[in-house]
Design a protein around this nucleic acid. Sequence first.
DNA 1: GTTAGCACTCGAAAGGGAGGAGTGCTAACA
DNA 2: TGTTAGCACTCCTCCCTTTCGAGTGCTAAC
Lengths: 358, 358
Amino acid sequence: MEMSERKLQILQAIILNYLETAEPVGSRTISRRFLMDLSSATIRNEMSDLEEMGLIEQPHTSAGRIPSSKGYRLYVDQLMKRDTVDDQQMNILMNLLKNKTVQLDSLLREIGDLLSTMTKYPTVVTMPQIKQSALKHLQLMPLDEHSAILVLVTDGNIVRNHVIPLQHEMKETDLYRISDVLNKELSGLSLSQMDLPLIQKIKRDCHVEPEIMESLLNAISDTLEHAKDGDVFTSGATNILSFPEFSDIARARSLMEFFNQKDQILHMVSTEERPVGTGLKIRIGTENTIEQLHDCSIVTANYRYKDRTIGTISVVGPIRMDYQKVVSALEGLMLDFPDLFGKPTGPDIGSLPDSKAN
Amino acid sequence: MEMSERKLQILQAIILNYLETAEPVGSRTISRRFLMDLSSATIRNEMSDLEEMGLIEQPHTSAGRIPSSKGYRLYVDQLMKRDTVDDQQMNILMNLLKNKTVQLDSLLREIGDLLSTMTKYPTVVTMPQIKQSALKHLQLMPLDEHSAILVLVTDGNIVRNHVIPLQHEMKETDLYRISDVLNKELSGLSLSQMDLPLIQKIKRDCHVEPEIMESLLNAISDTLEHAKDGDVFTSGATNILSFPEFSDIARARSLMEFFNQKDQILHMVSTEERPVGTGLKIRIGTENTIEQLHDCSIVTANYRYKDRTIGTISVVGPIRMDYQKVVSALEGLMLDFPDLFGKPTGPDIGSLPDSKAN
DNA sequence: GTTAGCACTCGAAAGGGAGGAGTGCTAACA
DNA sequence: TGTTAGCACTCCTCCCTTTCGAGTGCTAAC
């Protein structure tokens, strides 16, 4: 079967109309709304071809057509154009954001909120894994007789704190002195590199009563061990309740519950690396490995810190989602935060020459 | 109309059955399941009386009865018994919790999660308002040339941190010295007490170059000023999707969106003080001032720190919610965390003598 | 290659009983 | 006087049928 420019136009029209209405699209609708110089009969013939090619499908005999996963795949790979400029609202919010925060984790939260507000789809951000980021600074602070607070500052200015129990009462100055020693020994290392041998070494080098140091270091290494690795932040999850594909409560619930399963989300986004090129990974419907997401599409961007990929930002929507809007929003973000995403290299698969959809 | 023991039993039976089935309860059901020594006709007569008293109502002529708000009010005030012991699962979780954390905010989060797991209803916790809690300790930490991290530890071991910009480069020792001064001046005060005159005073007393101190203190007071006051933590919100009263998507969505409106939640729980006695505030259906909650009931406990009420923990459910389970769970928590809730004084309204519902 | 016309399909919506759960009322009974 | 059996009545729910219409595929003409 030959692919023609006209077929692509029709496919695009179907995708566009189905995005708006969530109803199967008939030949007459296309003839009237998109390609007025062709009769519905002609379009019917073309649609028949498109169906044979597997790009669209018919829910039942006497219904219109809806795009298939393969059809969407073709669309996002070849047909979809980028919105040239992010809209005003986004720019305003973005500027606010840039001036506001320098802590990576809160920045990511705000970006997630922003994306969700912009696109009206839920967003999911996997937070940097604290265990794998390098320690910038460490500080013990007195709390009361039985405990101190350990504050850890890592790459990206992420701050974590933990209350650690003290076996022996310690003076403030002692805590500060130990902090200094630990800083010298540990800064620059990732939390996962702080293993037992290293701790032993510090124990020897540090001129404090051994048993005090012992218990303190144990507490610290405990803390490091249990540092929650891989949090997930979700924003705008309730948006899915406005899509007719989730008017079935069971389906809506299953997806909502997915958003709460942090380990599953982490596993999902980590299984596949992002492709070269646009820097975005798009998973359409059944391309998702997780069954709960077979009715969804996900657009994912990886973010990095110091050239190492450390997490992902995803937009989740129904399969008919507005890929163009989502991709544009994400690419806009990527341009605005080059430190986080690197400059995207742009689409590596050329759009078709003259495909104008309206 | 006289209230009788038997009428109360019937009311209780209706409430119990409606809790299970979410369907109107007929006279025959009660006769078979709850009061087998009475015929359905007798129960019909009593039900007719109960309806006249406004305690139950009929959705339509040929349907059974459902409890009215007034009926539930009578139930929670007079009929409801407490489950004597929290179940095993809860005890296990609770013990885990007690040994785990000493930071008030994470403790509250865990309690919220626990309550939601136990009851299968969503829980909403309003977090302590950091602005109003007393400062325990304060510490400036170096970050890079242009910024430092201000770590604040308040009552309840709540730790907050903020990156603050530095106009002039500062040595680590300087930061520590300033921390010391600030600590001496500020600890014990609530963040809202740290006003401009106080800051001016510190500026004079502190022997650092004035313009450095100036910018630093400005940054700090800025930080204090903008300290987000009143966060809200929600757990188990998706549970509402399992209740038939929210099978209507629009209704479910409206409630889900309510959970995201932090200011509205804060406003709601702060408008009414808790009553003396059990220490729990129960709002049934239209007793809620917020329209989105007219289909819901909320059970709220206040928690305190150093005898000052600083926040609330609420369980939200459909009007037919299992008040007994929820109240027992909350009261169990209150017994287990006397520091947080004070010992509850127990029900101040006596239960009826012999009302056994099964 | 395009289009008008037409028969055909099939889901969605509307109409119409049948069934049944539940009520209120009455009259009889202990 | 309280309790209960019996009965007529109501009205919701379920299911079946019919109707309607949107959309298709095919054919023949342009």
